[in-house]
Amino acid sequence: NRRVIAMPSVRKYAREKGVDIRLVQGTGKNGRVLKEDIDAWLAG
């Protein structure tokens, strides 16, 4: 149960899109989840 590193704005964006942020692979520094990662996850 790893802790997800993401800015609050990215967490909010994921919530609005209905994405469980824990399932998204972060590509930022130290595995940080970026807004682009959410978009990529939604695109498949």
Rank of each mutant, 00 (worst) to 15 (best):
G44F: 12
M7T: 15
V24P: 05
V4G: 04
K35N: 07
K35G: 05
K29F: 09
Y13E: 03
M7G: 15
D20E: 09
A40Y: 13
D37A: 01
G31R: 09
R3Y: 04
S9Q: 14
P8S: 08
R2N: 15
A6F: 02
N30P: 02
E16L: 13
G26W: 03
K29G: 09
E16A: 13
I21T: 03
Q25V: 14
D37C: 01
G28W: 02
R2T: 15
P8E: 06
S9T: 10
D39L: 09
G18T: 06
R22N: 11
S9A: 15
R2L: 15
V10L: 03
K29N: 10
G28L: 03
D20L: 08
D37F: 00
T27S: 12
R22G: 09
A14C: 05
L34A: 06
A14M: 01
K12V: 06
K17R: 11
N30Y: 13
I21Q: 01
K29Y: 10
K29C: 04
A43W: 12
A6I: 05
N1A: 06
A14P: 00
G26T: 04
Q25W: 15
K17W: 10
V4F: 04
I5K: 07
D37R: 00
R3W: 04
A43D: 11
G18M: 13
D20R: 06
I38N: 00
R15Y: 09
I21K: 00
R22W: 14
L34V: 10
G31S: 08
L42R: 09
D39N: 12
R22F: 12
G44E: 13
G44L: 14
I38H: 00
R22S: 11
K35P: 05
D39F: 05
A43H: 13
E16N: 11
T27D: 02
T27C: 05
S9D: 09
V33W: 01
V33L: 06
L23Q: 14
I5H: 07
E16M: 11
K35F: 06
Y13K: 02
R11N: 02
L34Q: 09
G28H: 04
D39W: 06
G31D: 08
S9K: 15
I38G: 00
R32T: 06
Y13V: 03
L34W: 06
A43K: 12
R3L: 15
V19N: 00
T27R: 10
V33T: 09
K35H: 06
R11S: 03
E36A: 15
K12G: 04
R11Y: 05
E36D: 13
V10Y: 01
W41V: 08
G44H: 13
M7I: 08
V19M: 06
G26N: 04
G28C: 03
R2P: 12
L42P: 05
E36L: 14
K29E: 09
K35V: 08
E16R: 15
D37Y: 00
K17D: 01
V24N: 00
Q25F: 14
V10A: 04
G18H: 12
N1K: 07
V4P: 15
I21Y: 05
S9I: 13
G44V: 14
R11A: 03
G31I: 02
Q25M: 14
V24F: 04
R11V: 05
N1C: 06
V19I: 11
A43T: 14
G26D: 02
I38K: 00
G18D: 11
L34H: 13
R15E: 06
K12N: 07
K35S: 08
P8T: 06
A14K: 00
E16T: 11
I38D: 00
A14W: 01
A43F: 12
R15A: 09
A6T: 04
V10E: 06
N1I: 09
N30Q: 11
K12Q: 06
R32Y: 07
R22H: 11
N30V: 08
Y13T: 02
R3N: 15
R32F: 07
I5A: 05
K17G: 05
V4A: 04
D39P: 00
R3V: 15
D39H: 06
G31Y: 09
N1M: 04
S9Y: 12
R32Q: 08
K17L: 12
V10M: 03
A43Y: 12
L34F: 13
A40H: 13
L23T: 12
R3I: 15
R3M: 06
V4S: 03
P8F: 04
L42D: 06
W41F: 13
M7K: 15
I38S: 00
P8W: 07
R15M: 10
A43G: 11
E36I: 14
D20Q: 09
L42A: 09
G44N: 14
R32M: 11
G26A: 10
R32I: 05
R3Q: 14
A40L: 13
